[in-house]
């Protein structure tokens, strides 16, 4: 569990945008919070897992997939902005995100 700083928020956003730009072969400038991951980027749900792996390593997170699953049932992720929110929640609350 980590306290989120502005620097971390910027870092997480930059990683997510860089990831989608690279994987989906689009310019970073074409991606913003309202960009739809499936409709606009032809993305897929596996990308969420890959990003979680990246952040797990980067911030040494204690998070289980089933916790993320429970959270995402209540808070479906469709856009880059929603994904950013979910990643920040995971970093901040780790397995406790199920209580949110």
């Amino acid at each position: 569990m980590a306290e989120l700083t502005d620097k971390m928020r910027k870092e997480v956003r930059a990683i997510i945008i860089e990831f989608f730009a690279e994987e989906c072969e689009v310019e970073q400038s074409e991606i913003n919070d309202s960009t739809h991951i499936f409709d606009d980027l032809d993305g897929d749900s596996l990308m969420f897992l890959e990003l979680i792996e990246i952040f797990k390593k980067k911030y040494s997170l204690n998070i289980e997939l089933k916790a993320i699953g429970k959270y995402s049932v209540k808070h479906p992720v469709r856009t880059v902005g929603e994904l950013l929110t979910m990643q920040l929640m995971i970093i901040e609350h780790e397995n406790n995100i199920t209580n949110l």
């Binding site: 994987e23 989906c24 072969e25 032809d42 993305g43 897929d44 596996l46 990308m47």
Partner: peptide, 8 residues
Amino acid sequence: IKKRIRKQ
């Protein structure tokens, strides 16, 4: 085929 799909 886009890179993302090619990987799969």
